[in-house]
C-alpha cells in the first residue's frame, strides 16, 4: 500500500460528504442527489463516480471485485482494482460470491447477490430523460412532479416505428413506484436483476456529479405497455465455453474468416461453471 495517500485516496471529509449523499440517495430510492465530485487521477468517462462511491464506503476488511462489461480482466477493471490495491490495500477477488463490494461498468453479475454485498455502478448519464428533454431544469421539474408521460411516449413511438421498444441498454426503470431512473448502460437483459435485489445498489456519475441508490429489496420495474410487456433478450445461443443458456453473451470474433463465438460476458460465472464440469457439449 502506498502511504502517500489517505486510505482509499479520498480524504475523510470528502468521504463523509459522499456518504451523506449516499444516505440521502438511499432514503429516496431512484432520486438523483447532487454531490461534490472530486478530481480523480483518471479522466471523466472512466468510472470516477463509481470510484468515489467505492472509496467512501470501503474498509480494510472489505473484499473488492471490479468488472467491466462483465469481465475482471479488461483494462478498466484491472486499472481500478490496482488503484484500490495501491491506495487501500484491500483484498481483491474475481469471485462474485467472495466480494463484499462489487464495482461494475455496464453489467450485473449473473450470480444473485446477497444482503451483505454492495454493488456500485459506473454511470455516464444519470438523467433518464436527457435525450427527450434537453432542459435539466425541466427534467428536475418532471421528476419532482412525477410527470413521466414523455418517456412513455418515447416507448410508444418505438413500438409504432419498430414494433417493439428499441432500447437495448440503459433501459429506463421505475423505482419504488415513484422515480424514473437510468440503471446505467447495463443491457436490458440485466434489468430484472435490479428488482428486489438483496444487495444495496449504488450509482455514481462523476462527470455529472450525481449519486443515486436502490436500497435492498426495492421494487424496480422496467417501463413497458400492458400489451407490449418488457422482455429480457439475449443472443439465442449457448455459451461456447460453458454451455450456459441463461447468461448474457458476448459475441467474439475468433478468426479473420468471420468465425465467431458466443461466450458468457460474466467471466466469473463462466469460469465457475467450467470448474464445476460444465461444457458446451453437455446437455443442459
Amino acid at each position: 500500500m502506498n502511504t502517500g495517500y489517505n486510505f482509499a485516496y479520498l480524504d475523510e471529509q470528502t468521504k463523509r460528504m459522499v456518504r451523506r449523499a449516499i444516505l440521502k440517495a438511499v432514503a429516496v430510492p431512484g432520486h438523483q442527489v447532487p454531490f461534490g465530485s472530486r478530481e480523480m487521477p483518471l479522466p471523466y468517462g472512466w468510472g470516477t463516480g463509481g470510484i468515489q462511491i467505492t472509496a467512501s464506503i470501503i474498509g480494510p476488511g472489505d473484499v473488492l471485485k471490479v468488472i467491466d462489461q462483465g469481465a475482471d480482466d479488461t483494462t478498466n477493471a484491472v486499472s481500478i482494482r490496482r488503484f484500490f490495491a495501491r491506495t487501500a490495500g484491500v483484498a481483491p477477488t474475481t469471485r462474485t460470491e467472495h466480494a463484499t463490494i462489487i464495482q461494475t461498468r455496464h453489467r450485473i453479475p449473473e450470480k444473485t447477490l446477497r444482503e451483505d454485498q454492495i454493488i456500485v455502478y459506473q454511470v455516464p448519464q444519470p438523467e433518464p430523460l436527457s435525450r427527450l428533454e434537453p432542459s435539466r431544469a425541466e427534467t428536475r421539474r418532471m421528476h419532482a412532479l412525477s410527470e413521466y408521460g414523455l418517456m412513455q411516449v418515447k416507448l410508444y413511438e418505438d413500438i409504432t416505428r419498430y414494433g417493439h421498444v428499441a432500447i437495448s441498454y440503459d433501459y429506463p426503470v421505475m423505482v419504488n413506484f415513484r422515480y424514473l431512473m437510468a440503471p446505467s448502460p447495463i443491457p436490458a437483459f440485466d434489468n430484472p436483476k435490479l428488482h428486489m435485489m438483496p444487495a444495496l445498489q449504488l450509482f455514481g456519475a462523476g462527470r455529472e456529479k450525481r449519486i443515486y441508490a436502490v436500497p435492498p429489496w426495492t421494487d424496480v420495474r422496467s417501463l413497458d405497455f400492458d400489451d407490449h410487456p418488457f422482455r429480457a433478450t439475449r443472443a439465442p445461443h449457448p455459451c461456447g465455453l460453458c454451455g450456459a443458456t441463461d447468461s448474457y453473451l458476448d459475441e467474439v470474433v475468433v478468426d479473420d474468416r468471420g468465425g465467431r463465438l458466443f461466450v458468457c460476458s460474466d467471466t466469473d460465472h463462466c469460469e465457475t461453471r467450467r470448474q464445476a464440469g460444465a461444457n458446451p457439449l453437455a446437455a443442459e
Partner: peptide, 27 residues
Amino acid sequence: LRMGVSAGGNVGERLMAQGARHYGRIR
C-alpha cells in the same frame, strides 16, 4: 405539439401521462 413524435403519440400523451399503459387502446 411534439413535432418529432407521431400524431398518435401526440394525441395519446395526455392519456399516458395519466397512467394509460395499453398501447393498442391508446392508439
